[in-house]
Design a protein around this nucleic acid. Structure first.
Length: 186
DNA sequence: AATCGGATCGTCT
DNA sequence: GACGATCCGATTG
């Protein structure tokens, strides 16, 4: 398995969101390795995207989206959950990131079950906050460089799947015309 | 199977 | 001072 390099993330945000499907998100804590196949993503970017955290301008929260590609943008939401994005954008945009919304559990399923407190495998990592709980991702990983990190990165996964389904993004009220939610079924 | 409300607090207005 | 890029359990049909 080979890790995704910097240039992968320096393409257009929407393109990266599509290409991340089927890749493997890897999380290492101590001697434990947990991983899952990415099955759903969402693209968010600046300037033309009212639904994005980075729509208006840089703030303390969203500054990672304006930074170097390949780093993690972790945000806290609904008073209790974290969600993880990968910063990805071409030179045309000042900010952009891809939200990882769903994984198919792969390695370290026992550890993820322990973290989540549920036995149900299909319910383990099938949501943006569920997967951060399963993988132990919090604000501590804010800005982590997935190109160099030993504990959080993305590598090649499956090559073949049927097709990508594009839909409006989940949980937002604006920019419903942008079909920037992408998913695959494995 | 689908809908509804509660939990809970950092971030932005 | 209001509101989420959510999840879960309870209720209803």
């Amino acid at each position: 398995m080979s890790r995704l390099e910097r240039e992968f993330y320096s393409q257009d945000t929407i393109k990266v969101a599509r290409q991340l499907l089927g890749k493997t998100l890897v999380r290492k804590i101590g001697k434990h390795t947990m991983s899952g196949i990415i099955t759903e993503t969402e693209a968010y970017r600046q300037a033309d995207d009212p639904a994005s955290h980075a729509y208006k301008d840089v703030t303390e929260r969203n500054k990672a989206m304006f930074g170097q590609v390949g780093h993690a943008y972790v945000y806290f939401t609904y008073g209790m959950y974290y969600c993880v994005n990968v910063v990805a954008k071409s030179k045309r945009h000042k900010a952009g990131a891809v939200l990882i919304r769903s994984l198919k559990p792969h390695e370290g399923i026992d550890a993820m079950i322990k973290n989540r407190g549920t036995e149900n495998i299909t319910n383990l990592t099938n949501g943006p906050a569920k997967l951060t709980i399963a993988l132990g991702i919090t604000k501590i990983q804010y800005g982590e460089d997935l190109v160099n990190s030993k504990s959080l990165y993305i590598e090649d996964g499956i090559k073949h799947y049927q097709k990508i389904i594009a839909s409006p993004r989940i949980g937002i009220k604006s920019a419903m015309d942008k079909l920037w939610n992408f998913k695959i079924t494995i």
